[in-house]
Each structure stands twice: as C-alpha cells, then as structure tokens.
C-alpha cells in the first residue's frame, strides 16, 4: 500500500503546532510554538491574546516544519486539522490555514476532533489494540471512552462539572502556585501527606465524574485557615486532593474495563502526564493483566503529531471535509461509529 503522509495542524488553545505523520504511526517532524509564557502573567489563557499569537506564528511554524523535515508540500497526501473543541478564535487560525492549503493544493482536508487526537497520541508509541477503553483527562475533559475499532468512539462516562485538569489548576491557584499549576500539584503532592479531611469526588455506580465539590472544599479550607491566620500546608493539601481525585478515577476506570470485558487501556490528554495517575493505573492494570499504554510526555500536551495520527484513521473511514468546514467550540466526538 502507498504510504500516506499527513500534514497536521493543531491550534485549539495556546499552542501553534504542525506535524508531518506517516501512515498514522510514524512522526516525521513536529514544530510547536507555545505561548505559555505570554499567558502566565494573566493566570490563564486569554483567548484574544492567544488568537493574536497564533496568527503571528502560523506561516513561520509551517515553514520551519518543511525546512526541518526536508519534505515538500508535494509529498503530502492529506491535510489533518483540529476543528474543535477549543477556543474558537484559536481554532480558526489553524483551520483557515489548513483550508487554504487544501484549496491551493487540492489535497483532501481531514477534520479531526481534538480528543480523538489525544487518544491517537498513543498510536505513535504502539499501534492501538481493540477493543479498548480510553481514559481522557485534560483541562477540558474527563471522559471514559469505549472504542471497538479505529475511529469509533462511544462515551461511557464524563465529568458532570469541572474537568479534572481544570480542578487541578484551580486548586493550584488557591494554593498560590504559578500557572499552569496542575503539574505542580502532582509534584508537591509527593512531598506531603494526606492530612486534610476533604470529601471524596462522586463515587457512585456510574462512570461519571464530579470534581467541583472537592475543588470548592479545598477553596473553603484554605480561606478558613487564612482567616484564622493559620499557615496552609500546601504539600499536604496537594496530596490530600490528588489522593482522592486519582483514587476515584482509577476505581471507575478499572470497573469499566471489567464490565466491558476489555483488556486494553489507553490514557490520553494533558493530565496523562500526571505521574501519580500513571503509577496507580500501572499498578492496577498489572494486577489485572490489562495492557496499559500512555503517551510520552511530549504527546500529552496539545500537539499536532497526535492530530496527524488520528487524521490517518479518519481518512481511512472516509471522513473528508469540504472548504466550509467550520471551527466549533464545543462538539462531541462520540457516537461517531
């Protein structure tokens, strides 16, 4: 079969990323411009500033990708692009760029859902095996997804309020940690102990999650302690929070594997970089003889390599968009069977 080279573009939040991926499994080259330092002083991503940065960088990233990969546009077979979900103004830049490339070169435009990308980040390590359960954990998502085959997604559970990464970042913020604080919570947690009496997140028979309760509890405890003039033991707070959150996620994930009778688990999304979550899942999957894979750290955060991997399988399934493909802030990947 002929090799398929995908030029992939991802700009859903604060990273302008482009990549060339061969046959959905092999990363040829990726160039990413991150804006993290720009947004740090605001304590979060400012959409208008993100959009302005994307447009300044869009052709520069594209050019650097071709320079570095020594591949030319004529070698490219398909254009994969994140169309959503994400920040509309940010998505728009990558999308217009991709559509223009498709318009000028006539190459097919493949719409890729951002979460499909995160799941397929695992495919760059090792070919996905089906059926599988994907645990998608990021700043915008906490989902359990069942996949019976390539590019088929069925959601079996999801967060009812805050995404797990969002809860981590908010807890980090009230603890006075620098943005983005989620990874710091994981780090400091290792130095602390589980001493704060926080409520457990939703721990019922469903596969849904809820993290706003425990997040609010952290905020309340910190405010009360501050009013009393007591010192906050930040490391202990991080540990108490992380312990409960990870326990519930691991418990529900393991139950899903058993109830759906699935032997493959993949971890995806920015919070897949969380070391404690990886460790705990590794332990449990080992015990239960489950194949567990998680992406390299560089594929956990937003990147175009994962979009290029997913685009290949979307293309195999005949998902080709015309030039009226639009960016969407909120969109469900699921029931794309």
């Amino acid at each position: 079969m002929k090799d398929i080279y995908c030029l992939a573009i991802e700009s859903s939040c604060d990273e302008t990323s482009m990549s060339i991926i061969k046959n959905g499994i092999e990363e040829i080259e990726t160039v990413t411009n991150t804006q993290i330092d720009i947004h740090k002083s605001f304590g979060g991503v400012v959409p208008e500033i993100a959009s302005r940065s994307h447009i300044e960088n869009v052709t520069i990233v594209l050019d650097e990708l071709f320079q570095r990969s020594k591949i030319s546009m004529s070698d490219i077979d398909i254009i994969g692009v994140t169309y959503g979900p994400g920040l509309i103004g940010s998505l728009m830049i990558g999308l217009q760029c991709a559509k223009t490339i498709s318009l000028v070169t006539g190459k097919p435009l493949i719409p890729v859902h951002h979460i499909a990308g995160h799941i397929y980040a695992n495919n760059l390590e090792k070919r996905l095996e089906f059926p599988l359960i994907a645990l998608v954990v990021s700043g915008g998502h906490t989902d359990l997804v069942y996949m019976k085959e390539d590019y088929s997604f069925k959601k079996i559970g999801s967060t009812l309020d805050d995404a797990v990464g969002e809860a981590y970042d908010k807890v980090a913020k009230v603890c006075g940690l620098e943005y983005p604080g989620g990874p710091l919570v994981d780090k400091l947690s290792k130095l602390g102990r589980d001493t704060y009496d926080l409520p457990m997140p939703l721990d019922d028979d469903s596969y849904n999650f809820s993290f706003s309760g425990i997040k609010s509890a952290v905020i309340n405890v910190i405010h009360n302690e501050m009013q009393r003039g007591n010192e906050i033991r930040v490391n202990d707070m991080c540990n108490s929070f992380q312990e409960r959150v990870v326990s519930v996620i691991v418990k529900k994930t393991m139950r899903a594997l058993s109830e759906y009778n699935v032997n493959n688990l993949v971890l995806a999304g920015g919070v897949a970089a969380n070391s404690y979550l990886r460790e705990r899942l590794e332990e449990e999957t080992n015990k239960n003889n489950i194949n567990f894979s998680y992406p390299k750290i560089k594929y956990c955060t937003d990147n175009a390599a994962m979009i290029g991997a997913a685009a290949y399988y979307a293309y195999q399934k005949g998902k080709i968009a015309d030039l009226t493909l639009n960016a969407v802030a909120v969109d469900t990947l699921y029931n794309e069977e």
Partner: peptide
Amino acid sequence: SFTGVRIGVTIAKTYGYLI
C-alpha cells in the same frame, strides 16, 4: 472585527507562503 480580520489575513498569509 478582530476575528473577521484574522480570517482574511490567515488565508492571505498561507496563500502567499504556498505560491
């Protein structure tokens, strides 16, 4: 419109780069 302007400019930049 900020977004409107960015759409045209992104198309022009990409097009210019390609040709």
